[in-house]
Amino acid sequence: MAAIATPRIGVFATRAHRQEFIAMLVLRAASTFVVVAISALFLYLAIEGTKLFTVDHVSPFQFLFSPVFNPDANKPGSLVFIVGSLSVTLFAVLVGGPFGIAVGVFLAELAPPRMVAAMKPAIEVLVGIPSVVYGWIGLTLLVPLIRTVTGSNGFGLLAAGTVLSVMILPTVITLSEDAMRTVPNSLREGSLAMGATRWQTISRVLLPAAASGLTVAVILGIARAIGETLAVQLVIGNAAVLPQGLLGATAALPTEIVIDMAGAQQGSLLEHALFSMAFLLLLIAMALILAVRFALRKRA
């Protein structure tokens, strides 16, 4: 009797099995890379971003709440940049938020198909326009306009906030349109059948029903605005002072980082302070992601 070959078992039994196994391995490795990338980024910035407190012994309280930014004199107070970042972002959300939601509602509820066909590529292009081109338009068109109208020098909170309002539009529009489209049709039909007008249906039934999705749209708009660097840097005025009203020049966290990093010696207090600002930005971004998760869980 001829010897019966031992049957090969398990994942390597056939060529197809082997292929399946390798594919699984490669796909899993790629997914793991994503986890590794964000973990490494967080860890690295956490280490570099806390050297200001561990190596230079600056108190976190001073970093967060002192308006005096003078790294040469061991005073890396970043209140100005934090307030600057928060103010331009708030401005952008107050203007761009409602505007974007309005357009999103329009696209989902009353736009004729041809209008949708025109708007979609337009929004795609708005996403694609580089931030430095937005900044350049702000610098050469908006700043002189503000200067002529108000008599200020044009650079400042108003210019930066306006540029950001436009830049967050695509995010807010796309996400709020999606949010409106996920509202079940039965709600629309029910409301209209009760005799409500289209606007009554939208404002009293659909918007509340889409509230969590719209919240996400605004939160991700905030995330886009707070990290924006060059468009803001070109028009905000870059003065390390707290904004004096809408027309005042100020600075924001990303703009301060991008300007001063070039001249920061490796290991200096200034460099540590800039990394602390970057870490703070990262923490804000993470908080926003958690807020998104929270908003979506409430719906479920």
Binding site: V35, A223, F275
Partner: peptide
């Protein structure tokens, strides 16, 4: 969750990470 977090990292922060690495 990692992908979502990575998506919100501001590009200047990513730039500093690149500088570090």
């Amino acid at each position: 969750f990692s992908a979502e977090s990575l998506a919100t990292v501001p590009s200047i922060v990513m730039g500093l990470f690149g500088l570090l690495v």
